[in-house]
Simulated scan of single mutants.
Amino acid sequence: MLVLVVDSSTPAVTAALAEVADRGVAMRARRRAVDAKAHGELLAPAVAAVLAEAGAEPRDLDAIVAGVGPGPFTGLRVGLVTAASMGQTLDIPTYGVCSLDALGLAAGGGRVLAATDARRKEIYWAAYDGGARVTGPDVETPAVVAERVAGLGVTAAVGEGAHRYAGVLGLPVLDEPRYPPAAALVELAAERVLAKAPGERLTPLYLRRPDAVAAAGRKPVLR
């Protein structure tokens, strides 16, 4: 089954094509560009590029897998809107995966902290044991996270947030992956894809309110 994978939960804009079968997952094409301010400009061309590289058309897709965050409001919304609109247009199922889970799975065995940059001097984080999440996701300052994982037996950290705040977290940081890998995202959804499970609503994990919010109400006009 041919699956499109997208993730825009971090500064990395990711698009990939994967073949999902009973024997496993095979990546056919992938693109990644890192630019925190250009998610909207980068994702559509990346999707077109992976389809072209694989010699496929949108109508050849059987499903779409999207990283649902956590991530900053604007960037995360780009990937999810793209995935949802394509799924609806093509009448194929969409499946969501926590983007931190992809980092945790790709990190391998042991107890690992996965962290991405949440801005405002905070990180999105979750802890994993052998790729399985044991706590999180949450958003907090690196100092608070360091205190929380101290009693969890975490021995290493992974992700761009871990690199950014390595000195505060006080953990060895793995060089890779820094961003949610497409292969791990689709692997986490492979069982649902193969079972042809009903498509899911792609609900974003914002974990906090966006920087810009609508006014609570109209101010009275004084005359």
Rank of each mutant, 00 (worst) to 15 (best):
Leu51Cys: 04
Ala52Glu: 13
Glu53Ser: 09
Glu53Arg: 10
Ala54Gln: 05
Ala56Asn: 04
Ala56Gln: 14
Leu61Ser: 10
Leu61Gln: 09
Ile64Trp: 08
Ile64Met: 13
Ile64Phe: 08
Ile64Leu: 12
Ala66His: 04
Gly67Pro: 00
Val68Leu: 12
Pro70Gln: 07
Pro72Lys: 08
Phe73Asn: 06
Phe73Ala: 08
Leu76His: 07
Val78Asp: 02
Gly79Ile: 12
Leu80Glu: 02
Leu80Asp: 07
Leu80Val: 07
Val81Asn: 06
Ala84Pro: 00
Ser85Pro: 00
Ser85Met: 14
Ser85Thr: 14
Met86Arg: 04
Met86Phe: 11
Met86Pro: 04
Gly87Thr: 00
Gln88Ser: 09
Thr89Tyr: 13
Thr89Val: 12
Leu90Met: 10
Leu90Gln: 07
Leu90His: 06
Asp91Ile: 02
Pro93Glu: 09
Tyr95Ser: 03
Tyr95Asn: 03
Gly96Leu: 08
Gly96Thr: 08
Gly96Asp: 03
Gly96Lys: 12
Ser99Met: 12
Ser99Cys: 12
Ser99Leu: 13
Leu100Arg: 07
Asp101Val: 02
Ala102Gly: 01
Gly104Ala: 09
Ala106Met: 12
Ala106Val: 10
Ala106Glu: 11
Ala106Ser: 13
Ala107Trp: 00
Gly108Asp: 08
Gly109Trp: 08
Gly109Asn: 11
Gly110Ile: 13
Gly110Phe: 09
Arg111Ala: 14
Arg111Gly: 10
Arg111Phe: 10
Leu113His: 04
Ala115Cys: 08
Thr116Arg: 05
Thr116Pro: 00
Ala118Tyr: 11
Arg119Asp: 02
Arg119Tyr: 01
Lys121Asp: 15
Glu122Arg: 12
Glu122Trp: 00
Ile123Ala: 09
Trp125Pro: 00
Trp125Ile: 02
Ala126Ile: 15
Ala126Tyr: 11
Ala126Lys: 11
Ala127Thr: 15
Tyr128Ala: 06
Tyr128Asp: 10
Tyr128Val: 11
Tyr128Leu: 15
Asp129Leu: 12
Asp129Lys: 00
Gly130Tyr: 13
Gly130Glu: 15
Gly130Ala: 15
Ala132Ile: 10
Arg133Asp: 10
Thr135Ile: 15
Thr135Gln: 14
Gly136Thr: 10
Gly136Cys: 13
Gly136Phe: 13
Gly136Tyr: 09
Asp138His: 14
Thr141Cys: 06
Pro142Gln: 11
Pro142Arg: 14
Ala143Pro: 06
Ala146Leu: 14
Ala146Asn: 12
Glu147Gly: 05
Glu147Val: 11
Glu147Phe: 01
Arg148Phe: 00
Ala150Arg: 13
Leu152Cys: 09
Leu152Pro: 04
Gly153Phe: 06
Val154Leu: 10
Thr155His: 03
Thr155Cys: 05
Ala156Tyr: 01
Ala157Arg: 03
Val158Thr: 09
Gly159Asp: 01
Glu160Val: 14
Glu160Ile: 15
Ala162Ser: 08
His163Met: 09
Ala166Val: 09
Gly167Phe: 05
Val168Pro: 01
Val168Phe: 01
Gly170Ala: 04
Gly170Leu: 02
Leu171Asp: 01
Leu171His: 05
Pro172Val: 12
Pro172Asn: 07
Val173Asn: 01
Val173Arg: 04
Glu176Thr: 15
Glu176Ala: 11
Pro177Phe: 03
Tyr179His: 15
Tyr179Phe: 15
Pro180Asp: 14
